[in-house]
Amino acid sequence: MNENNAKAYELRNLTADDVFPMFKIISKIGIKEFKACFESDEVKKMVAQSGKEGADLNALGMSVAIDIAGILMTNIGSCKEDIYQFLAQLSGMSKKDIASLPMATFFEMIIDVFKKEEFKDFFQVVSKLFK
């Protein structure tokens, strides 16, 4: 971050068009690993309670997002160029600009994508496939 505590980037809202590069990245990381994110006892319990009063869907989305972040960190090298392209599309920056970001800013950007409400909503919907 710069001296004014403003981020060096701004991410637009995720749209349907963003699903395709996300799937490309997921396939390079390994779909089985992502599927495992939805099979934990914690996620199954949250999904089972999703229709009940007091269900915490934000917690479900965040739980899955954290698991996915861990998988991404492990396998990030295999999809470096795809991630640069995806972040460039979300931020309006070039791939070269993304590649030259300080490490902390780069990972902050990835985390900000995971924290986006649209990202959590997407994975909440996808998790219903594994009920």
Rank of each mutant, 00 (worst) to 15 (best):
V43C: 02
T74M: 07
F130Q: 06
P21W: 07
T74A: 12
I111D: 12
M73I: 15
S91V: 00
M109E: 04
F107E: 10
V126K: 06
M109F: 04
K7L: 14
F119E: 02
L90F: 07
D41T: 00
A16P: 00
V113Q: 02
F38Y: 15
K96P: 05
S100V: 01
Q49W: 03
N13G: 08
G61P: 02
P21R: 07
F107A: 10
K35T: 12
T74S: 09
G70P: 03
I26A: 14
I83P: 07
L101H: 00
F106K: 11
S40T: 15
K7T: 13
I66H: 01
L90C: 07
E10I: 12
A48G: 08
I25D: 01
M22S: 13
V19N: 09
I68Y: 05
E33M: 12
M22L: 14
D18V: 02
E33T: 09
D67F: 07
F23E: 11
K44L: 05
K96N: 04
K95E: 11
S63H: 05
L87S: 08
N4W: 06
G54T: 01
A88L: 00
V125A: 11
E33Y: 03
S27G: 04
G61W: 02
E42K: 08
F107G: 04
S94R: 03
A99Y: 03
V113G: 06
A16R: 12
E108S: 12
F107S: 02
D41E: 05
K52S: 13
I71W: 10
F130C: 02
E117C: 00
G92N: 02
V126W: 00
S127E: 03
I83D: 01
N13L: 14
Q85V: 04
S40K: 11
L101S: 06
F38W: 09
L72K: 05
A99E: 10
D121F: 04
S40H: 01
K44N: 08
M103E: 12
D18N: 00
I25E: 08
I71A: 10
A104I: 15
A16L: 15
N5R: 15
K44E: 02
K131I: 11
F114I: 10
I66P: 00
I66F: 04
M109C: 07
I26C: 14
K120D: 07
G54K: 06
K120Q: 13
C37S: 15
I110T: 05
P21A: 04
I29P: 04
A36Q: 11
S63Y: 03
I66E: 14
A36L: 10
